[in-house]
Amino acid sequence: MPVIKTQNLTKEFKVFEKQPGLGGAFRNLFNRKAKKVLAVDSINLEIQEGEIVGFLGPNGAGKTTTLKMLSGLVFPTRGTAEVLGYTPWKRPIEFRKAFSLVMGQKNQLWWDLPASDSFFLLREIYGIDRKKFASTVDELTTLFQCRDLLAQPVRELSLGERMKMELTAALLHEPKLLLLDEPTIGLDVVAQSSIHKFLEEYNRSRKITILMTSHYMRDVERLCSRVVIISSGKMVYDGTLDGIKKRHGNEKTIRVLFRKQVSPGILPGLQASEVRGEELQWHVSREEIPKFISHLAGRDDVVDISIEDPPIEEVISKFFQSQVIQAPTLPAQVES
């Protein structure tokens, strides 16, 4: 049985247009123009136990709204979803005990108290057995190497340390599903990688299912075997990261170091895209690579050659751009 299964999951929001100026403010009192915005459009998603799925898309694509529907915080306008066997927006207590949602932009720990006090309260709220609680805290803090931070007021922790505490808090009740909304936002490389390591190991040992949004490709490359991309509320890709590269990353970046400076048009029919002293750089499609190499082979002033895939950020942003559809706004309606 899949952990998450949605069919045509759709969410429309009603937003009110505000007319500018004082006159507009008065007109708004009596006559507000309502506009429907399609935030999530017919998402069909199926995620199996133990998967780590990256949920990508530009800002405003509907990622967070989808996560909120899956966690029962938002009612869908249409469609169905089954998460861990429950309908999320009915929010039964057993469902709430079975998953966790962590948002990188928000914190749920008591700001003025040490994290250990918040953990204690969560133990009471989730009704976690004392022994079990002690061993879970022990396991998580060992994995995160953050035991010495437990007694410090949360407001005194760095962003990275706080995120570790947030994740620990989210896992105290041993959820089967973890929904992460930009868990590494604002973190430095070291903190990011320690969170990656933690999630990787926890997923391996517990078979926990993780669905995460992120704008950092580092997160996705490191953790996610599968990637789902949405754009303007629509699902536009579901597959492996390599699959995206094959579809949209057809180009390779070739860098050649020459013995001395040469002109960018040194190879017939191929203009270099960048010149850095003796080094020239070309973007070449896969099919053109043999031709390119044969041109170079006859030259004796070549010192070094490297052929690389373009950075994944570039590939993904190309993917977003290629899928940009007009913002899905339904006809404006006047609401009295």
């Binding site: 207590i93 949602l101 749920q108 709220i125």
Partner: peptide
């Protein structure tokens, strides 16, 4: 949101 997620 966080309060609504709690199982009480």
């Amino acid at each position: 949101d966080f309060f609504l997620l709690k199982p009480i």
